[in-house]
């Protein structure tokens, strides 16, 4: 009789609901602490660059547009990021957040992994080839 455990288990499993999910149609809610895509807002950023200095993967660059009026653009390399959340912890002004909703980060081309955050005219200037005024703020370049 002892040897029938596996058969019993298989028979019971026949009438159970499948353990797997129909993923794109059915999605589990993500926990609030999930570390997904990084977001940066220019409001409140003082350009102290703690985030880019502390990043173990050199995934963040802060580009200084104008230091006196505190205008910055963040270049985020999602392909380098290891999602440790260190930058979110050490930003004093809560400019950085990691979205628990955005975790499907696959893309077909590499450009999708370089993300620019900031005011639209500033981002445009950076895309046109603007070089940061403060070279010390970019340890990765």
């Amino acid at each position: 009789m002892k040897r029938h455990t596996l058969l019993q288990y298989a028979a019971r499993s026949l009438f159970r609901r499948a353990a797997t999910q129909r993923y794109p149609a059915e999605r589990t809610p993500t926990p609030e602490r999930l570390r997904g895509t990084l977001h940066w807002t220019p409001d409140g950023c003082t350009g102290c660059c703690l985030c880019s200095k502390e990043c173990p993967a050199n995934a963040i660059e802060i580009i200084t547009i104008d230091k006196t009026t505190k205008q910055f653009v963040a270049r985020y390399h999602a392909d380098r990021c290891i999602y440790c959340g260190q930058c979110v912890v050490n930003c004093r002004f809560s400019c950085l957040t990691m979205s628990p909703e955005e975790w499907e980060n696959a893309a077909l081309h590499k450009q999708a992994f370089t993300v620019y955050y900031g005011d639209a005219p500033h981002v445009e200037r950076v895309l046109e080839g603007f070089v940061s005024q403060d070279s010390a703020s970019n340890p990765s370049t």
């Binding site: 926990p31 602490r33 999930l34 628990p100």
Partner: peptide
Amino acid sequence: FEMVSGQRMM
């Protein structure tokens, strides 16, 4: 682990 730390493995 995901609920506690935000990542499943790392």
